[in-house]
Design a protein around this nucleic acid. Structure first.
Lengths: 116, 116
DNA sequence: TCTTGACTTAGAGTTAACTTTAACTGTTAG
DNA sequence: CTAACAGTTAAAGTTAACTCTAAGTCAAGA
């Protein structure tokens, strides 16, 4: 049940404090609390959530869509189906993207071997 | 030795005419010619080049770096080493990126299977 | 000849995702 | 007590990569 300041959370998830505040403003982190002085306190759950946001973002999902997913997540079991459909669609997109990357890798390697 | 109008080239490489003009303005397509009326004529070589630009861009290289690579390419054999070094470095980046994508894929799949 | 349509240019506008600034506040070390 | 520090906010600024607009040109068909 450890707590993190924004500086510590920033270090932990490798995002700047600016970005963390920005994500919160955009509604991606609805559960970050504040201490009596108004300073953000990040819980392990928040860090987990940020980790998954980085996963979705790193695989090309826009923050807007990530928020949609997060909003469904907040609505719990009721929206489970919808939410999982999003992930399954995204899974296909990642698979497709890996294929494309492999194709591009071959193109770059071919160009390297061309030696011209 | 076929020639393409901007509309045809656009169709062929799946980029809008706006984007093709933009790439040219940025110096990424130094060999596109014009007809007597001032209209762009794309050669097969240009389309090949655009194809490789899409490959580099699709694997995360910025247009700025792509231009650097293209500029080296224009200088021919003299810059071969430098140019190939760029590609080899980029190759590593793609390999790393594919690894990351696979890791993220597993995370998404785990979340799908979690069923909560 | 007129008009339609596909092009041209320079430059302005857009979007996503940050990133920074300015002004301020509360906590802590000396 | 006070200075330094780490945080706060709203809002402005930045960057990359387009994307569009306005005004104009040119060639081809009715």
């Amino acid at each position: 049940m450890s707590l993190y300041t924004i500086a510590q959370a920033s270090e932990e998830v490798d995002l700047t404090p600016y970005t963390l505040r920005y994500y919160e403003k955009e509604g991606l982190l609805p559960n970050v609390t504040k201490d009596s002085a108004g300073r953000r306190k990040y819980h392990d759950d928040d860090l987990q959530r940020i980790g998954f946001i980085k996963c979705l973002k790193g695989t090309g999902m826009s923050l807007k869509q990530i928020k949609e997913y997060g909003d469904l997540y907040e609505q719990g079991k009721a929206k489970f189906k919808e939410r999982n459909a999003m992930l399954e669609e995204h899974r296909e997109k990642i698979l497709q993207e890996i294929k494309t990357q492999k194709k591009y890798l071959k193109m770059v390697e071919a160009k390297i071997e061309m030696k011209i």
